[in-house]
């Protein structure tokens, strides 16, 4: 949106660099909003220049206590690497909120099951997935994977994608999304595992009440108990940080 307001269309690499100049005001604005309205906001992801000069895709959580938590995208897509030279981040950690620990997985990261599992092992019960896809194929990759993450970890997955068109911005000119709030598939949840979703490719708000104790029920009493029925005697992800 901010790039759309530039006087001239910038080349992708220059555009993403320009976007990083907006990071401070974006963070400031959202932090003020979280405090003023007394809400926790999982902002979309924003191109951010790191201390060593790299540009990364970073998701932000603005909590009502005024704290800001940044989470880097772990896996940049081939497109992000090629057009914008986006680098992948390393840390994968939950964010502690007054609604319990939550996780952020940016777009493509949701297509790697190890990330969600690690976040859920760390106690996350809601995973937030900001995404940007330009085709129905791309959108469905994210959506199918998010629904898989909700089932295999017995957690909620909240997706939020960009819709419509952005004139004047190369490589972000068309968007396709249908954001949704996904649940495990079992009796206490909606029968299709969708707590709420928006219309296709329309800018709108989806609302759902998520009860965390229902997840606990599903994990202990559900028809299937994917999270707890893991065969850790056979397999386990070993992380290079020892986790």
């Amino acid at each position: 949106m901010l790039l759309s307001a530039e006087p001239e269309e910038l080349k992708p690499e220059a555009a993403i660099a320009r976007l990083t100049e907006h990071t401070p005001e974006f963070v400031e604005l959202m932090t003020a909003m979280a405090i003023r309205r007394n809400i926790n906001i999982i902002g979309g992801s924003h191109a951010t220049r790191t201390e060593d000069g790299e540009i990364q895709n970073v998701g932000y959580a603005f909590l009502r206590d005024g704290s800001v938590h940044a989470r880097e995208k772990i896996h940049p897509t081939p497109n992000e690497r090629q057009y914008w030279h986006i680098q992948g981040g390393d840390p994968i950690d939950v964010i502690e909120t007054d609604c319990g620990p939550v996780g952020i997985m940016i777009c493509y990261d949701s297509e790697f099951p190890e990330i969600a599992r690690r976040l859920c092992d760390q106690g996350a019960r809601i995973l937030f997935v900001p995404f940007n896809t330009d085709t129905r194929h791309g959108y469905l990759r994210v959506r199918y994977c998010c629904q898989a993450r909700a089932i295999e970890n017995q957690c909620y997955v909240v997706t939020s994608g960009m819709t419509g068109n952005l004139a004047n911005v190369d490589n972000l000119d068309i968007e396709y999304a249908q954001s949704g709030i996904f649940t495990p598939c079992d009796f206490p949840f909606a029968r299709d595992g969708i707590a709420a979703e928006t219309s296709e490719n329309v800018e709108m708000v989806a609302v759902a009440d998520l009860n965390l104790s229902t997840l606990a029920w599903a994990r202990y009493e559900g028809s299937v108990r994917n999270f707890r029925d893991r065969r850790l005697d056979l397999y386990r992800t070993k992380w290079s940080d020892g986790g």
Binding site: I92, P101, R118, Q122, G123, D241, G242
Partner: peptide, 16 residues
């Protein structure tokens, strides 16, 4: 002689 606990592991223990 080894890596300390990670933040995530402690968070996991506290959440569980």
């Amino acid at each position: 002689d080894e890596a300390p606990y990670t933040r995530g592991m402690i968070m996991g223990q506290l959440s569980a």
